[in-house]
């Protein structure tokens, strides 16, 4: 899989192939967030510091996006909650007909997108942590 990340400023690759997301922590109220913003969404403080999210999280919700009439374009999309409280939406690896359960432990991995013009791009995605399920 290529590693031409679509938004490099979001991604911190780990040596084991997993990812962390480059988010932020508010020094004022402690709220974590991703993507980064100019000021904290909760308290409006601009006193922010960079914070790494993940790689581990918990699946908060998941669905199969079947908007396209072509089954080849169907994707699992989910929202995950990180231990520090941030919620992040992203693609989920796996079969669209067998989505992982809500509450499953997940981890961040590279996820390749294929566009109608044949181009590809890599972003972050979630996959179920197999060891956690064992």
């Amino acid at each position: 899989m290529s590693q031409n990340f679509m938004v490099p400023a979001w991604i911190h690759p780990l040596d084991d192939g997993r990812l962390r997301l480059i988010g932020q922590r508010c020094r004022g109220c402690g709220t974590h967030a991703f993507p980064r913003t100019t000021a904290c969404k909760k308290c409006s403080s601009a006193d922010l510091e960079q914070a790494m999210l993940g790689p581990n999280a918990t699946l908060y919700s998941v669905t199969a996006d079947r908007t396209s009439t072509s089954a080849a374009n169907h994707k699992l999309v989910g929202q995950a909650q990180f231990p520090d409280g941030a919620y992040v939406q992203g693609y989920v690896a796996g079969d669209v007909n067998y989505p992982p359960r809500i509450g499953a432990p997940v981890e961040l991995i590279p996820y390749e997108l294929r566009f109608p013009d044949g181009q590809t791009g890599t972003t972050y995605g979630f996959r179920v942590r197999e060891k956690a399920n064992a």
Binding site: W10, S61, V62
Partner: peptide, 20 residues
């Protein structure tokens, strides 16, 4: 950014609410 963040489809976002 919308594509990379899986934010391209409003119906999907509502479906996530439904699943939750």
């Amino acid at each position: 950014k919308m594509q990379a963040g899986a934010q391209t489809n409003a119906m999907t976002i509502f479906a996530l609410v439904a699943q939750r």
